[in-house]
């Protein structure tokens, strides 16, 4: 793979991370991070939708009438999200119940519109597809990191498997109930941003 294309995939993981740098798509992200499994499924769904919506819009980019551009983009995104939602309901029913309305909210996930406008409208389909996948991964990465921290410290398990041994509990260790409540998701992301910017000082805001 050409190095330019590789960059499209890798940049969103750190320097151009959609959540911690571009401030996109936080809306639907945090509510699904109590456990790792829903977070993984959510990350995967978003990656699929960003990849394919970028691909479709980039293939159509020269034919789309400028006046109805936004509507066409929304229709493509919404259609993809509906298909993903139907698939989740059919094949991973228990997770789809946990995600509830947040699957639908992928539609208004700013990453999608943001990448379509900023990238897919001006680039070839294959590059756009990679850009979409890269951004989906960058988003998913933060989601998974946050959910691992929350599930490990909040329930002492990962993907449902108990990790913290029973003897710890007997010695007085307690799960931190705060971690499963919404505010800790925000604070966890804040701390991740802090760590990332300490390492990568050019991202610091003035």
């Amino acid at each position: 793979m050409a190095s330019k294309n590789l960059k499209l995939l890798i940049n969103p993981l750190n320097n151009e991370n959609p959540i911690t740098v571009q401030v996109l798509g936080i809306c639907s992200a945090l509510a699904v991070t109590v456990q790792v499994k829903p977070a993984l499924i959510m990350a995967l769904s978003v990656t699929v939708v960003t990849g394919f919506s970028n691909l479709i819009i980039a293939s159509l980019r020269n034919t789309i009438p400028p006046r109805i551009r936004i509507i066409v983009q929304l229709v493509v995104i919404a259609a993809l999200v509906i298909i993903v939602d139907q698939l989740l309901k059919a094949y991973v029913y228990d997770v789809s119940k946990k995600l509830s309305v947040f699957v639908g909210l992928i539609i208004t996930n700013c990453i999608l519109m943001g990448r379509l406008e900023a990238f897919a409208m001006a680039n070839k389909p294959w590059e756009s597809f990679l850009d979409g996948i890269g951004n989906g991964f960058g988003y998913g990465m933060i989601l998974v990191v946050v959910s691992v921290l929350r599930e490990l410290f909040g329930s002492g398990s990962l993907l449902g498997f108990q990790l913290i041994p029973q003897s710890f509990y007997e010695a007085g260790y307690k799960d931190n109930g705060m971690m499963i409540l919404p505010p800790m998701a925000l604070i966890t992301v804040g701390i991740i941003i802090w760590i990332q910017r300490t390492k990568n000082r050019k991202l610091i805001e003035k």
């Binding site: 911690t20 401030v23 409540l181 919404p182 505010p183 800790m184 998701a185 925000l186 604070i187 992301v189 804040g190 701390i191 941003i193 802090w194 760590i195 990332q196 910017r197 300490t198 000082r201 610091i204 805001e205 003035k206």
Partner: peptide, 23 residues
């Protein structure tokens, strides 16, 4: 505020603290 935390970082943490208060 510590430089890496300025802007986005501190906003997240502030929102988290506000959310705790709202709980």
């Amino acid at each position: 505020i510590p430089a890496p935390l300025r802007g986005l970082g501190i906003s997240f943490i502030l929102t988290g603290l506000l959310a705790i208060a709202f709980m």
